[in-house]
Design a protein around this nucleic acid. Structure first.
Lengths: 203, 203
DNA sequence: GATGGAGTAGACTGCCCAGTCTAACGGCTC
DNA sequence: GAGCCGTTAGACTGGGCAGTCTACTCCATC
């Protein structure tokens, strides 16, 4: 099995996976040889498929950001919709993969400025825009106080991830992304963006 | 002046400064030779002073985290105290230096786990604890709703920095840390943590 | 069974780097 | 002026790495 693991077609896939794991564990400075060994592939094969180390890295990061994306579906009430999103968002962003991709992209942003911008657009910005659209609708329907939806989305995602991400990045310990904590954050957000005054159904 | 810039005593300082700038601009992988050239010093001198590249790096990062710290003094009302803190905090954390130190420490946290932990303790944790103490007092005095001060501090610092920091890290453009935006965040925080109900002086 | 495409092993080039070592320099004190 | 200390320039060691090149092996197709 270790002698003949070559269905010859999905070598590309295998290579991407190996490179992904290697870059996550060791950063961009991992050597091509180590990636090749990991994928059980000759070094030259990597150059055949991706042209250069930079090409491989770019492909891996583009794939990585997609794997972290979270979308939100809004059918229930605002709180449960936001809570569901919050749980999924934290699960992705604080996962070992999410932290590793974040770390690697931060580290290499100055070396690959275009890639870093793309990462930002297709990661944080995309999430924020989707969330802002939802919040805008909720504001229109009077379920949230009228305010800048983009600002609200920024603040919400910030509250969900920031401190725990710092902790994971620097202490290298996985953060316990437990549901009660997440609910606390959702409620703190809702308190700040609740509709102005309950004049209609309260005295 | 460039031929004899050697007061022979503060070579140590000059070295630290040069290393600081070099690490910020190029990351840990900057070569010792480049740092030496920058400080106009022989390579051997670096080893005399710091023992190794790692020793120099550790010293630079420890100094860096201190330079970013923000303390808060609470004499005025809550809002103006928090606003003052918020402005100072954003100015430090989103400054080119703040972003560069953050980037470097994130990138090297796996190589220097002990240093990264120290960074976290003496940076984000310290700030959060100071802020939490202040918030706890404000809660005791009824100026803020009773809640977990540590959580409130986490959320506040998150709202202040997170999204703009991402933007700076990935797009490499400096974020406009303008005062109105900061005030918006402070007010969003205060809305969420305002005292429960104005039962005393309102009907 | 010849051809060609994809993969492989490994040698090789050219480069960079951390850290050590040596010999010399300059200033300081006694 | 002898001795010492910190500094300096540069050679040197030992190592790693990206990317190229060559010679070879499969394997599928025709």
């Amino acid at each position: 099995m270790s002698a003949v693991p070559k269905p010859t077609a999905d070598i590309h896939e295998r290579l991407l996976e190996a490179a992904c794991a290697a870059f996550r564990e060791e950063g961009y400075q991992v050597s091509i040889d180590r990636i090749a060994a990991r994928a059980q592939v000759a070094r030259q094969t990597i150059y055949n498929h991706f042209g250069s180390k930079e090409g491989l890295f770019a492909e891996v990061m583009r794939q990585g950001v997609r794997s972290i994306l979270v979308t939100l579906e809004g059918d229930g009430d605002v709180r449960s919709t936001l809570l569901e999103f919050a749980l999924a968002y934290r699960a992705k962003v604080l996962s070992p993969d999410g932290i590793a991709i974040f770390r690697t992209m931060v580290a290499e942003a100055t070396r690959f400025p275009a890639l870093a911008r793309q990462f930002f657009r297709e990661g944080p910005m995309r999430t924020r825009r989707g969330l802002a659209r939802y919040l805008a609708r909720a504001m229109d329907q009077g379920q949230l106080r009228r305010d800048d939806p983009a600002l609200a989305a920024k603040l919400f995602t910030a509250m969900l991830a920031d401190f725990d991400r710092l902790q994971a990045l620097f202490t290298l310990r996985r953060t316990a992304a437990d549901a009660p904590k997440t609910a606390q954050v959702v409620d703190a957000f809702l308190r700040s963006f609740a509709p102005d005054a309950p004049k209609k159904d309260a005295p």
